[in-house]
Nucleic acid binder design. Structure first.
Lengths: 113, 113
DNA sequence: TGACATATATCAAGAAATGATATATAATCG
DNA sequence: CGATTATATATCATTTCTTGATATATGTCA
């Protein structure tokens, strides 16, 4: 994830998979499109995260063969993953509210002390 | 910054200083309070960021002596820092909208392909 | 022919986060 | 009286993460 604000990539992956199973490359595109240039990610970041999510049981994976093109590894969010996503959504609401309150506050008089 | 979602600490520091000059320890408290437990940060993170912001001319610093207590280094946001903050606010709006759209989307039917 | 899209994966190098440690004083608690 | 917490700045080792390149393999477009 490039840029100044870096959300946990695992949350974005789970959020993307909540809309339906996807392979890694499709996840990359989905995140880039939803971010409209503000959320970019490299493969060097995505695949390790995907493997860790699978290892922890938040997603399951299945190989889908294709003729003439490389095989796809299709990921599906698990029940455990959905619970984690729910938790991450709550956390996101709180964190983003906190960041907004700090970032969007108006300038006031001195108050150091 | 701990937790799953990690905003750029420099943006939070500049945002905090926009409300008035503060010393490092006060910045820490301000961010923790505004984050209501969701934004925590260690000193090992804050001071290097503060020094880099000063080096880059986004903040200026001045020592304030105290009797019986350690001296404070009071930071003030510069004009350059204000312009940077304005940019970071815009970026935050876009990034947070993108994250929200990914995270808060409802589950749909399969659409891998 | 070269570049780009599809598709997964690893790796080295650099950047950042975590948590501890150091230093120093005052107040609070048992 | 000893321990802990708050104030206050700063560094450091360890671990973790990001970046950008590399590897492999095919189809399409200019």
């Amino acid at each position: 994830m490039s840029g100044l604000f870096k959300p946990d990539l695992s949350a974005l992956v789970l959020g993307t998979l909540a809309a339906g199973p996807k392979h890694g490359y499709a996840i990359t595109r989905a995140i880039r499109e939803a971010g409209r240039g503000n959320l970019t990610l490299g493969e060097g970041q995505l695949y390790p995260v995907l493997h860790r999510l699978q290892e922890l049981g938040f997603v399951s994976a299945e190989w889908h063969a294709q003729t003439g093109k490389p095989s796809r590894k299709v990921y599906t969010i698990t029940e455990k993953g959905k619970r984690r996503l729910a938790k991450q959504r709550r956390e996101w609401s709180e964190v983003s509210a906190g960041i907004s309150s700090i970032l969007m506050q108006a300038s006031k008089a001195d108050n150091h002390g």
